[in-house]
Design a protein around this nucleic acid. Sequence first.
DNA 1: GCCAACGTTGGC
DNA 2: GCCAACGTTGGC
Length: 138
Amino acid sequence: MAYWLFKSEVSTWSWDQQVAKGDVGEEWDGVRNYQARNHMRTMKVGDLGFFYHSQKEKEIVGIVEVIAESHQDSTTDDERWDCVDIKAVRSLPEPVTLAMCKEDPRLAEMVLVNNTRLSVQPVTKEEWDIVMELAGDS
DNA sequence: GCCAACGTTGGC
DNA sequence: GCCAACGTTGGC
């Protein structure tokens, strides 16, 4: 079981919209970056991920679960692009901001901190646990 | 709004 | 196949 982080702008696709979809979930479509796509191709049903709001908020707000493995992105006919489906699991008790991640020396290697432009990225078990701790979730 | 980082495109 | 030009993302 692996851990991931999904980035989205609030104006494009927000956590509230994801939550509103409930257990039906939603395609994580629109990704046009090979690295991000490759991460999605390795995802398995049941993997968990953080939901991060980029740009204005810059904070991890919730937890999602992969509910369908990678398939054709329905927003394009281009066969190069596929994506997984995810559903909201729950909100974090307290959002974890990018600043908090940067301040914690244990998260110095986190992709979120180092590669700001990657929209779908892996998170290690250790990083996951630390973020959960920062979120006030035990 | 600016700019750095990075990915993609296209000319050679 | 290299590399310059360009476009996009996202933090500040």
